[in-house]
Design a protein around this nucleic acid. Structure first.
Lengths: 253, 253
DNA sequence: CGTCCTATTGATGGGGTTCAAGGCGTGTGG
DNA sequence: CCACACGCCTTGAACCCCATCAATAGGACG
């Protein structure tokens, strides 16, 4: 599965992110590849790892969409955060024994498994990389905090607009979106699970956004027709994404 | 401010937690004291550190209640998580430049400031302590994830009961609650900000819980009259608190 | 004793859920 | 190739939980 370019190594979404924002030596980035002992694919709806499962290896999202999720006793699902290519599915793996939530595939998904012990001992020798990985998980912590604000203090249309803007911005970082369009492979049921709504409400809300000419939908393609309008509507501010922490190469996307 | 017992050192809520659950050498725990360069007190409502402020030192909650909070453009506040004695106010401080949220005092509060560089270099030499601190922040990450579920998939009465159970359990760990009672120094407005509700709704909900003989209130004292009933009502499960990860001394409180 | 903050309680209204019916697109098997 | 099934989306109607507005009461404190 892994391939190396003659002059360099194969950039993954994660190494793109880390290299761009944190200036990690590319030798260290390349070394991540050597810790990969398995790459696996999942189809929509499959569970990559379940709540309560032992955390035996580090899991990186290589392609496709997935999510952290918990379930209530009544069977309702709440998506805690969306994981995109370049995200780390197993933060805190060195101190947590068992997953306190599940990772589920929301599209065709491929993930890579890294050996936990090897990663740990390698990070001791690669402090810049360790910091970069830490930064990536800190970024996600902040995203989860914003998810709390979104659910606690915003209504359906604000949540939806805010969510689309966040996802778009994050896709831009890993070069999976254009300036104003992206592919969102989620059903409205899944969006509802992420936004604490129902599929019916999501349908009506998306239609409202479309009628207001803020977005346009064609199948899974979503165009953001009026980003400023969406930002204003949903009180969106990129600050929480920590895109510019320690950026050593300018502004970034 | 700091005082040492003749035979040992002064346990703080944090060292109690870390020592109990992670078996960190008490010499390492004692050494935390030496990194404290300041202890400061705040009154209700004061801001310990604001959103956007530079993170210059590690901040530990020594006594009193505080919270992570973000504010919407309309001025609404969302409390992301409650911080209790023994909690760390500045996770990720080594990789994050600026706070992406504020820390506010919800009661009389005292916090300790540790020198960031000294802490960092000390942790290199004290890997057990480093792991223990990491575990404490991982615990809080899980608590924030549960906050997402609470806001996204539970109604007012479930949220309230679930919140009370969580806080009670966390207070037990740092020995600030009895088996069935605790002091909750929050106004209903603050609880509302934590639960994504309004003060009016919190008032009505707490009254309902009281009429149902699940809790009893007298000023700031809250008694949990029927913990099983509250657990059942709110689908509460302590698993997400990670109380037993690496516990080396049994079940724990 | 008045002021301010907090809690309570009732009336009203609205945003989102629930229930239900129908349509669209895709895949599948007769 | 068409019929049918299935998943997903849409739309409408009714309902309900919680927000909003408002009035009152209770402390704490000067």
């Amino acid at each position: 599965m892994r391939q190396r370019l003659s002059t360099d190594f194969a950039y993954t979404p994660l190494t793109t992110r880390l290299g761009y924002y944190m200036g990690v030596p590319s030798a260290d980035l390349a070394a991540i590849d050597d810790l990969v002992f398995e790459e696996r694919s999942y189809e929509r709806g499959a569970e990559v790892i379940g709540q309560g499962d032992a955390v035996r290896s580090a899991i990186l999202i290589t392609s496709g969409w997935s999510a952290r999720a918990r379930y209530t006793a009544q069977g309702a699902r709440q998506i805690i955060s969306i994981l995109l290519p370049g995200d780390i599915a197993t933060p805190d793996l060195f101190v947590i024994d068992r997953m306190d939530h599940a990772i589920v595939a929301l599209s065709e998904l491929t993930v890579r498994f890294l050996d936990k012990q090897m990663l740990q001992s390698f990070l001791v020798r690669a402090p810049e990389l360790a910091a970069a990985l830490w930064w990536a998980t800190a970024q996600e912590d902040s995203i989860v905090r914003e998810q709390v604000v979104r659910l606690g203090r915003r209504n359906a249309i604000e949540r939806t607009a805010h969510f689309l803007l966040e996802v778009h911005r994050r896709l831009l970082v890993v070069q999976q979106a254009t300036e104003s369009a992206m592919i969102v492979p989620l059903t409205q049921n899944e969006i509802a699970d992420a936004l604490g709504l129902t599929n019916v409400s999501v349908s009506k809300t998306m239609s409202r956004l479309e009628r207001a000419r803020l977005i346009r939908r064609q199948r899974t393609v979503i165009q953001l027709l009026d980003i400023d309008g969406l930002v204003e509507l949903s009180d969106f501010n990129t600050f929480y994404l920590h895109l510019n922490d320690r950026a050593e190469m300018g502004e970034g996307p």
